[in-house]
Amino acid sequence: MDTMKLYLAIILIRFIYAGMFILNKAAMNSGMNNLVFIFYRQAAATLSLLPFAIIFERKEAPHLSFVVFMKMFMLALCGITGALNLFGVGLRYTSSTLGAASFNTLPATTFLLAVLLRMEVVKLRSVSGTTKVVGIVVCLGGAMNYAFYKGPRLLSWSHHNSVAHKGSQHSNKTWITGSFIFLAANILWSLWTVLQGRVLKEYPSKLLFTAMQCFLSTIQSFFVAIAFEHNFSRWKLGFDVGLLAVAYCGIVVTSITFYLQAWIIEKKGPVFLAMFTPLSLVINIILSMFLLGEVITLGSVCGAVLLVCGLYIVLWGKNKEEGRSEIHQERQMTVLESTASEVV
């Protein structure tokens, strides 16, 4: 029964993320400014998270020093404000499918940055080390294929939804530009993921830590949006797809997925969760074709296959390495226990 709940939770998470890409793209196709959208999204996320963080962690939370606060500020600026705004620009230039596909490069780029920052070690002479390097190369190959090769059309769904069709077609120049913007956003996300671990050691209250970053990113996103969008009529929210996207991303994505992901990681670990990342891409390809009128090409299919294969190769190598590390630690403990018994 517990196993069934885990799989249902993972499928729900993947559908939530696929819906996020679809609604983001639909909101931008309807004319909503992507910078303004990020501000409202983070404001909604803050309002949904902060009360729970205060109720459940206020008494046990450690003292927030100025140094830790500034680290949180820089993390929010890099991994939330910077990454989400770049992601929004990339989404405007390309498609929701490419946005979902770019998510599959996150494990590879995160691992690469961890290696560059000397937080991970690559043993090229070991099978696991070589496998992870191969996986990264395959992931990057899939991303490059997505960016530079479209190929013939395979599937499309024509309908008369003006929101779906508006802005759904892109030139090769904007597509390539958007692909590199996605890459920059993923690098910032990966850097944010890698550096969060260090700050969490200083401030272990996870819910308050997340809520604080959402709050800081709301302020940052406001100044970014107001610097580029001076027409305040474009800041108005109506009862349309823009308001739905803001509420969905700010409340559903932030609150529900945060809880479910933490629960799954606690039960099965991060590798188990990451293994199902490509499911969002598959769901997104199908939904974007029907709801947004996006075209599925041979290049997008080939790129998706390479991205998924690269992701699983990296995860397999990482999992194998962690398994060997556990075996090595168990052997060391056995040796120490036997030595201690001999001394006694």
Rank of each mutant, 00 (worst) to 15 (best):
L113G: 00
L124T: 03
L64I: 10
V301E: 12
F223N: 04
W175N: 05
A164P: 00
Q196E: 14
T257W: 04
F37E: 11
F69H: 03
Y7K: 03
L183F: 12
V133L: 06
V246L: 05
N104L: 09
A245R: 00
A227Y: 02
I16Y: 02
H160F: 06
V253S: 11
V253T: 14
G197P: 00
Q220T: 01
K201D: 14
E120F: 03
F209Y: 12
V282G: 01
A43E: 09
A143Y: 10
N104A: 05
K320P: 01
G317E: 07
L273A: 11
Q329F: 14
T177N: 15
Y93H: 13
V36C: 09
N85R: 00
I226W: 07
V115R: 03
V295F: 04
I313Q: 01
G238F: 08
Q261A: 04
G293V: 11
L75V: 04
A164S: 04
T105G: 10
R234M: 13
S168A: 15
N34A: 15
M275V: 05
Y40G: 07
A245Y: 07
F276N: 10
T174M: 14
P270T: 03
N161V: 06
F239M: 12
A164F: 07
G310Y: 01
R125S: 10
T97N: 10
Q213G: 11
T334W: 13
